[in-house]
Design a binder for these strands. Structure first.
Lengths: 342, 342
DNA sequence: ACCGCTATTTAAACCGGTTCAAGTCTCCGG
DNA sequence: CCGGAGACTTGAACCGGTTTAAATAGCGGT
């Protein structure tokens, strides 16, 4: 098999210099039309594609962006966010032939991962996802000079452009929806408080209760996992006066919670109303179908990718606020049960 | 901010030539120990890391592998296989500092995607997943000279090393398990026949029935989707004599099927037994918990990555056969209902 | 025929590593 | 004191593009 052609081969075949070929390739003005055609057909004839490595070396751009997944490996398959988010990224970057590099990292190695990413210059920029309270990464990437965009809310002052999708309106709608159904005792099963988005969802639940003039309800940690959601649900149902509705930080714990409640003999939604968050593909196929909150991770990925490209090219980008998440009402929420008493 | 240091800076500081620095970096024999130390401390002092682009250009290796996801975007978040599989890949390649490039491609653009991948030489090799009947890719990558490993079974003759995990034993176990419970009419809801693994799972169901001397059962397409699983289930339950058990091609359609059955007033498993495939995180949290088949996608990813690295470095690698999938019995399967008659 | 000007083209340096062939040094045996 | 064998080092070419400054060409005007 012949060695793959280089720019020199094309130049020779077209009878021009390598510089000219390069100009044509990058369609820079100042090359005669006839020359352009000769170069193009020579390239065509040889099947030439410029070498990415060579380009990367001389331009200093790798034409790839990086996404670091910092999750316990066993939780990775659990969240429908990332696949959809990545699809959004791809849709944008593949238009210019750019690529997406995936790094997985254990929570502890995270800082080191970003250092390596910056040192290698294997990517032109990175996405910061799963932002946490006191997240070191925005400052880190600024210090490293690594272009980045934050996906979500950054709680500190930062130069890193931010692309956000507000979860809270959907959670508030959910709580209001439950209140309209007559619920007064609405509990919450939260994700890890370290995550900004988990805390903001929980806060939205608390705020909605307060706005309605209701006493602040019970919140238990569910860790965004099935097991955690199940445990929290058991704890809530074992109370002397259990809540009549539970809002969960995500669908995974909500589904587990539904199973626990049903095993305890409760009928849903007659005895207990349940709300999730994410609208995973299965949410419409639980029994009863899960009332939940829906964001648009794909559009989030698209917006984040656009912002990152802009940051890479112009040095910065404006913050973006996407359409907020919305409530999807299905069968797991219903009127508050009539209780004996009072 | 100062320009990042190059090998020349290190060489100068250490008082040696660039060649020597390069030798030390790649710990090649033949450099005096004291020189090595001087070079290393010079590199340390300057915080030097070799440029990946430069290395890629001169060595011809990018130190990255590619994974092409050919799925309809809306199905991407649906399958727990990929996240776990990628985690396995990462575990292997990150040991040597290699990276994983993700490409998403629409089913139609697939061949073009591989052409681009090969032309760009942005990756040193690729994984071929979701293998199909008459899949053009094994021949394509061979022709393109792009190192690759096939993840699953390739039905044609090919030089591409194969890493397989047999789904069939688990499906057979499932059918035998149902037969032991007294079921005689066991239907199947299949994934798209175009996928080799979907067809093999279905075949395993058919074989197990035949082995037990039972007549061949009914198989309906479910497309590996929730909606498809639901439709197939409706169709099966509407028959004059519906099956007493249904085996599904994956958990997604199984869960949807369960919902359909329950909505139709059937109790599970008393009136109908259900088996899925994948053991998604939610499978233990449906009501009843889903009996399903479990493979190990992470170990699959690890093995595939090892084989790919070997293929890249030695030109080829041996085929690998992993531990087969196994049956996980939960609450969605039970004794066949006693019917009136006969 | 010559000049100035603009439109094209190109030589050569550069990006930051890798890799041989060819030195330079030391030390040892004769 | 010399030749030669190792043990280390290094100069220089090379990977395949991009880019800038300078060369060349074509053309209307005088």
């Amino acid at each position: 098999m012949a060695r793959r052609p280089t720019i020199a081969d094309v130049a020779q075949l077209a009878g021009v210099s390598r510089a000219t070929v390069s100009f044509v390739l990058n369609n820079r003005p100042g090359v005669a039309l006839t020359t352009q055609q000769r170069v193009r057909s020579a390239a065509e004839e040889l099947g030439w594609t410029p070498s990415r490595s060579a380009r990367a070396l001389s331009t200093g751009r790798t034409r790839a962006v990086g996404l670091v997944l910092t999750r316990e490996p066993e939780l990775i398959g659990t969240d429908p966010f990332y696949p959809a988010f990545m699809a959004g990224i791809e849709a944008v970057i593949s238009e210019t032939g750019d690529g997406l590099m995936l790094q997985m990292s254990r929570p502890g190695d995270e800082v080191e991962t970003y250092h390596r990413l910056a040192a290698d210059r294997r990517v032109d920029g990175v996405f910061l996802t799963d932002l946490r309270q006191d997240d070191p990464r925005p400052a880190l990437v600024t210090e490293l000079g690594l272009p980045a965009v934050a996906v979500g809310v950054v709680e500190a002052d930062t130069d890193v452009p931010t692309v956000n999708l507000d979860d809270r309106p959907a959670v508030r709608s959910a709580v209001r929806h439950l209140i309209e159904l007559g619920h007064r005792d609405i509990a919450y099963v939260a994700g890890p408080d370290g995550f900004v988005h988990a805390r903001r969802r929980r806060q939205a639940w608390a705020d909605a209760l307060a706005e309605a003039g209701l006493p602040c309800g019970t919140s238990l940690p569910g860790g965004f996992t099935a097991e955690g959601g199940a445990q929290a649900t058991r704890a809530l149902l074992n109370r002397s006066s259990p809540p009549t509705a539970i809002v969960y930080g995500n669908d995974l714990s909500a589904t587990a919670g539904m199973a626990v409640a049903q095993n305890a003999g409760l009928r849903l939604p007659e005895d207990l109303s349940v709300v999730g968050f994410d609208d995973v593909p299965l949410a419409s196929w639980t029994s009863p179908p899960l009332t939940t909150c829906r964001a648009n991770p794909t559009s989030w990925g698209r917006a984040a990718a656009q912002a990152l490209v802009e940051t890479i090219e112009q040095g910065t980008a404006g913050d973006v606020e996407l359409d907020p998440a919305t409530l999807v009402i299905r069968g797991s929420t219903g009127p508050v049960p009539v209780r004996g008493g009072r």
